[in-house]
Design a protein around this nucleic acid. Structure first.
Lengths: 254, 254
DNA sequence: ATCTATTTGTACGTATGTATT
DNA sequence: AAATACATACGTACAAATAGA
């Protein structure tokens, strides 16, 4: 694999562990290693790179922090190529937006564009058992919330509904972005609970849309599913107006 | 800041450097530190956590790999909170999709949903000088490509056009996702160049759409910009069909 | 331009923890 | 239960880089 054009990495002024980490990544690609394959042990890497244990270990930590390897102790242990988990990817991306002061409107602009697309693309082939599962999940917020705390739980559960649906996406990119946005909104909700009054209109509209969406999915009606989801997003967005000032206040851990 | 609900991290079975890294992240949030602020030095952290130098250093590497700190040597040096760069965020997210076998169709499904939205939301307020800049950039692919290599450069430059436009987005989430997709397509292009024949129809259609889009932007005509971009995406997508089998073959470095 | 102080970066030896056989 | 193979952590010493006198 030759260095590609987008590889603008001025590999010059990287620290040694960073260089080692990069070289190991390239080596993994060259060797065609796949998730689960074992990397050379610390001793072997020390020999190969002519560097001390600490340097190698720092390099492995870098790869581990990026979610690319897992390390186990004991015999047969070592470092193993690991498929970056969705959870980890969301956490790393969340760190980027920590500094970005996203508004609820920003997120809903994308939700309105993408969630209907997801609903439509999932509808034709969705398994009835998955619809059952979603229907069961929706029970969590079937009854109106009575306390503020319960309202928060309802809201987070209804966001979870969307992330469960996102898992059904055949398009990994679409599924990821929607799942990520659900996470963002959940986090914002957590920090909003003390100020915001319960919003029963939002709750009932959300519950009804989810129910109608499930019916459309069960009927494999893509157009109907798309339309319901679009309406759902538009209404939720309008109800969310006036709560724009919220922003991320912490880093996400995996 | 209390531990939030999404914080499912069973902090139990994390390695010491990982725990230290998490604690430092929390501490940064608690202290309200912002980009540029200095973290305690290695010696201070060794004392605070009662751990050895190597352990602390591994923790710092984790934070550095996530793009959250930068480290400098020398007097007045140390580790500093750093706003995660867009480049870094794209690289980390790219690692996730390395394992996911994205198709061109997957990417275009999102582009078709999002790029028109971007064009429309940018149109009302875009600065004429930015349109000038985009127009100048479009010169790179004003003339038909003659060689296969030139065709590749044209294609990458036209993707760059979209990422330049994405930088104008007031919505950071929308801008990021579009920019990221342009990166994905550029990377795929690099590995496609040897097999694919030049595609003059694709080129001329792309060039014309870009020109018409620039006119609409200059006129601050959001609806027109949206329509042109949608047409652009639909046509490009259809031209890209049959090249579905491509996938990511390397990790992205910052 | 040189020295000096400060802070990170590298190296290495040893001891401990942990999971498999 | 014990031996083994591996990562994990510690402590110290020294090297390199950088800012300021």
């Amino acid at each position: 694999m030759p260095p590609a054009t987008t590889r603008t990495t001025s590999e010059a002024r990287l620290s040694r562990p960073q260089r080692v980490a990069e070289e190991i990544k390239d080596w993994v690609v060259e060797q065609g290693l796949r998730a689960g394959d074992r990397l050379p042990g610390e001793a072997a890497l020390m020999a190969r790179f002519g560097m001390a244990k600490g340097t190698i270990r720092e390099a492995m930590r870098i790869l581990e922090a990026q979610g690319l390897i897992r390390t186990r102790t004991g015999p047969g242990g070592g470092s193993f190529v690991h498929e970056v988990s969705r959870q980890r990817a969301k956490a790393l991306l969340g760190n980027y937006f920590y500094f970005k002061n996203l508004t609820i409107g920003d997120i809903y602009q994308l939700r309105l564009a993408l969630e209907p697309e997801l609903a439509a693309s999932v509808a034709p082939h969705i398994d009835p058992s998955v619809v059952d599962m979603l229907e069961e999940h929706a029970q969590i917020y079937a009854e109106p919330p009575t306390t503020m705390d319960e309202e928060r739980l309802h809201h987070i559960a209804s966001l979870k509904f969307h992330s469960l649906l996102a898992e059904q996406a055949a398009n990994p990119l679409l599924g990821f972005v929607i799942d990520f946005m659900a996470d963002l909104l959940s986090d914002i909700t957590v920090y909003r609970r003390l100020y915001a009054p319960p919003n029963l209109t939002l709750w009932s509209s959300g519950r009804d849309h989810h129910a109608r969406l499930l019916a459309a999915l069960r009927a494999h009606d893509a157009d109907e599913a798309r339309a319901i989801m679009a309406s759902h997003m538009r209404i939720a967005w309008s109800h969310m107006q006036g709560q724009e000032a919220e922003q991320m206040r912490r880093f996400i851990s995996e």
